[in-house]
Design a binder for these strands. Structure first.
Lengths: 240, 240
DNA sequence: AGAGTAAAGTTGGAATCACAACTGATGGCC
DNA sequence: GGCCATCAGTTGTGATTCCAACTTTACTCT
C-alpha cells in the first residue's frame, strides 16, 4: 500500500518519523529543498510541499536564509481555567506576567447579545486585554458586560470582585472551548507562526440564571494547554 | 500598506471577506483556479495557493472535478465534559450515537505511567473506544487503568460505576485540553479533511490523591466544542 | 588582527506547463 | 423516454525555472 500516495507524502512521513522518534532532536537542521530533491529523488515542488506541511504541523520551523530546523517544543504551559489566574500560572513557571487593558463602550454584536441574553446592539462595556509573559503577548481577551453593571471605577480585570461588590453574587462560569485558525489581527498581535491554531474560549459568568459578563479568550495552541479540575461524576451517570 | 504583500494574500483576503461577510453563502461555488487567474490577474501558483489556504482555514472545501464551495459550517456540537455524556449530547441534537470498544493489556508508556503515578512499563488495561454519530466516527478515546483495578467483567465504558463498585470513591477529574495536528492514524479513522486540527483531552480520574484511570480523548475541532460548567471563583481571587 | 565585503546557500513567492482522476452536463442512440 | 458515452471543466499533484530577501561563511583589504 501507500505506493500510489503522493510523492511529497513519502518525504513528510519519513521526516516526521525521524522527528517523533527522536532521531532528529529539537534544533537539528532539516535537509534543504535541494538536498531533499537529491536524497529522495523528488522534484523541487514535492520537497517544498513536504517542508510546508511539516512546518504547518508545527514540527519544524523555517527561516529565510538559514534553513529549517526541528522546532523547540517546550512543554505546553498549563492555564488553570477553573481559577483563571493567569499571573499565578505564569509565576509558577518563572515568567513575568503583565497585561494591557483598554476599555470602551460598544453595541453588542448579535452573538454577544445572545450570550448575555440582551437585545442586539444594546450598549455594553467592552474590555480588551493583552496578556504578556516576559513582555511577549501570549493571550488576548475581549470581555463584554451589559453597561448597567459597570460603574467604571474598579479594576476592570477583577470581574468577580467588582461584580460582587455591585451586589451580584456570581454562581458559576461556563466555558466553551474550541480551536480554530487565528484571524489575521490575532496572528499579528500574538506574533503566531503560520499554521499555529488558537484555542478560543467563550467564557460566561453567571449570577443565578443571569449572564453578567462574557468574554472571548484567545490562546495560542503551541504554548498553552487548559487545565480543568472538576468534581467526579457519580450517581446519575448514564450510559455513554 | 499591504502593497508589497504576497499576491496570493490579496486573493485570500478578498474571498475570506466575501465569505465572512455573507456575500458568499455556505454552498456557494468559489471561482476555479483559472477564473481566479483571470479575475485577479495572478498566476496559477498564486490562485492555487490562495485556495489551499482557504481550505486549510476550513472556510471552503474542494472536490476533484466539482470545484470549491463555501463550507457548510454547522454549529459546533457541544460536548459537556463535566458530565462526559457523549450519548446524551448526541441525542440532544438528534444524532444516533454508537461506539466500538476494544480492550487489551499493555505496558504503560512513560507519559501514561507519569499520569497514573506508576512505574513505567507497569501492566495496564488499555481500552480503545471509537464513538460514532449516525455511523460516522467522530471521536476517539484510549483509556488506561492500572491492571489491579480491572476485574474484567463490567461494562468498560462505565468507569465511574465500575471503579466505584470496586470500592474506590472517585473524587475529581482533571482534564488537560490542547489542540494539535492529528496523527495519520487519527485522520484516517476520523476521516478528517486536510488541515483540520483535533482537540486532545488528557483526562484523569482521581480517588483522593490517587489517579485511578487516565484517558486520551481525540475530538475533531471542526465538529465539536467542549463545554465546561464550573463553580464561580470567589474569595481567594488574586490579582491577574 | 579586525572590519568590511563578497559569495554561496536557503526560504518564500511566483509563473508556466503538464497530467491523472474525477464531476457534471450534453447529446446521441436504442 | 431512458441509457450510455463523450467531453469540457476542475482539483490535486508534480516538474521546472526564476527571483528577492535573507543568513552564514569565507575572504580580502587595510
Amino acid at each position: 500500500m501507500a505506493n500510489s500516495d503522493p510523492v511529497y507524502l513519502r518525504v513528510v512521513e519519513d521526516l516526521r518519523r525521524q522527528i517523533t522518534e527522536g532521531l532528529l532532536q529539537p534544533g537539528a537542521p532539516i535537509p534543504s529543498r535541494h538536498q531533499i530533491t537529491r536524497k529522495y529523488g523528488v522534484g523541487e515542488t514535492a520537497a517544498r510541499h513536504a517542508l510546508r506541511v511539516l512546518a504547518q504541523e508545527g514540527l519544524i520551523i523555517g527561516r529565510v536564509g538559514s534553513g529549517h530546523r526541528v522546532r523547540q517544543r517546550p512543554d505546553l504551559l498549563p492555564l488553570h481555567r477553573a481559577q483563571a489566574h493567569f499571573s499565578t500560572d505564569m509565576h509558577a513557571v518563572g515568567r513575568r506576567p503583565t497585561c494591557d487593558v483598554k476599555t470602551d463602550s460598544a453595541e453588542a454584536r448579535p452573538d454577544i447579545a445572545v450570550r448575555l441574553r440582551i437585545a442586539a446592539q444594546s450598549p455594553v462595556t467592552r474590555t480588551r486585554i493583552v496578556y504578556r509573559s516576559d513582555g511577549k503577548p501570549v493571550q488576548l481577551a475581549v470581555s463584554y458586560e451589559p453597561i448597567v453593571y459597570n460603574d467604571g471605577t474598579d479594576d476592570i480585570t477583577q470581574v468577580a470582585h467588582r461584580l460582587g461588590g455591585n451586589g451580584l453574587k456570581l454562581t458559576e462560569v461556563t466555558e466553551h472551548v474550541y480551536a480554530r485558525v487565528p484571524q489575521p489581527v490575532e496572528s499579528d498581535v500574538l506574533d503566531l507562526p503560520a499554521g499555529v491554531h488558537v484555542l478560543h474560549v467563550e467564557r460566561t459568568h453567571w449570577a443565578g440564571d443571569k449572564p453578567v459578563e462574557t468574554s472571548d479568550v484567545i490562546i495560542p495552541c503551541d504554548q498553552f494547554r487548559l487545565v480543568y479540575t472538576l468534581p467526579a461524576p457519580y450517581g446519575e451517570q448514564t450510559s455513554r
